[in-house]
């Protein structure tokens, strides 16, 4: 088996910002390259179902994943490869699930971005947007019942999900219960093909925070340093009993909704704006300008990431697909209730 943590955890103190930044950058890089590999496998017809990339959102995603710790819960969305890795998901969970392997966490029963390990705090998203937020709330309520204090829950959504009833119900519920929820909305300007002008009419999504009676924050989603600081603070605020934190990160989706989508509808004007910057390139420039690492080191990280991805893909390719004859066709935990 491959190690479940593909990038070594830092040996220096987490309070060293440059070290946190480097670590976050490496997760972003690994996520970007892993997703690019998956996209090429998709184009080669080797992937069943869709492939959904987080290109342009790695900074906000990794900042969320890295701010969480053991005992916390994370409900990622479809563009959270970086955050998943930083939270502790193995690269193998990613490759095995995309390839539908029986040995993956979803065993071929569910695919791609729907993977998770609920018992380890990683929730497996359903496709209905906003639906995972109240599930996080419930885990946080259970923590309170059970006297487990100091743990938080984070959920990722896009701006499109703020139009759902599930979002409204869940954020209001979290506010009423004063739960340690961090709700990270990445406003990437498009929900599939729908621009913000057809999605909401408020001047700024963060204005919703006041309506729910929760703390609101905004951040430039293309700037890793800002994301790390802001999400870190929001998580600590929630952990300290400050109630739900609504974070609005601004970015641009630099890919299609999925790999099947050429995103021709994305405005050229937006691509030229600062929010259209590639957060990975911005982070890399920051590392070099601050001399937190040199080009040779960056190249070695790149090679190391590619190596891990090749290993994970090669391993997953060899794994058996699910066998319908061997499948346990029972949807009940209480087996005696199955009429199968």
């Amino acid at each position: 088996m491959l190690p479940t943590t593909p990038v070594p955890h830092p040996t220096s103190k987490a309070s060293d910002f440059s070290e946190t930044f480097r670590r976050a950058y490496r997760w972003m890089l690994l996520a970007r390259l892993a997703e690019e590999k998956m996209a090429s496998l998709y184009r080669a017809g080797k992937i069943t179902g869709g492939v959904f990339l987080g290109k342009g959102q790695e900074a906000i995603s990794v900042a969320t994943g890295i701010a969480l710790r053991d005992g916390d819960v994370f409900a990622p969305l479809i563009r959270d490869q970086a955050g998943r890795l930083a939270f502790g998901e193995s690269l193998l969970d990613f490759t095995l699930t995309y390839m539908g392997a029986r040995s993956g966490p979803m065993r071929g029963r569910d695919g791609n971005v729907h993977r998770g390990r609920p018992r380890e705090g990683m929730l497996p998203m359903i496709s209905h947007l906003g639906a995972m937020v109240s599930v996080v709330n419930g885990i946080l309520m259970a923590n309170r019942f059970q006297g487990r204090l100091g743990s938080v829950g984070a959920a990722s959504l896009g701006e499109g999900a703020t139009s759902t009833g599930a979002f409204h119900e869940a954020l209001n519920q979290a506010a009423v219960e004063k739960l340690p929820l961090i709700l990270v909305i990445t406003n990437n300007q498009y929900s599939y093909s729908t621009p913000n002008s057809r999605q909401f009419a408020c001047a700024d999504l963060v204005d919703k925070a006041a309506g729910y009676g929760v703390s609101g924050h905004t951040v430039d989603g293309t700037d890793l340093a800002d994301c790390l600081k802001l999400i870190g603070n929001a998580v600590e605020c929630a952990r300290a009993g400050g109630g739900p934190q609504l974070v609005i990160a601004t970015s641009l989706r630099l890919v299609g909704h999925g790999e099947h989508d050429d995103s021709h509808y994305v405005s050229a004007h937006l691509r030229e704006m600062p929010l259209g910057r590639d957060c990975l390139t911005v982070a890399e420039s920051r590392i070099l300008s601050e001399s937190w690492a040199d080009k040779v080191t960056l190249d070695s990280w790149h090679r190391d990431s590619l190596h891990q991805i090749e290993e994970a893909v090669a391993y997953s390719t060899r794994e058996a697909a699910p066998d319908p004859a061997q499948e346990d066709w029972c949807a009940y935990s209480s087996r005696q209730l199955s009429e199968g």
Binding site: A131, M132, S134, M141, A142, V176
Partner: peptide, 21 residues
């Protein structure tokens, strides 16, 4: 008492059940 939020009522119950309730 819950808010009038059937979706969130059930969603939160699912989360709590995962956590052993």
């Amino acid at each position: 008492d819950s808010p009038i939020s059937e979706d969130a009522m059930v969603g939160s119950a699912i989360g709590a059940s995962i956590q052993g309730m």
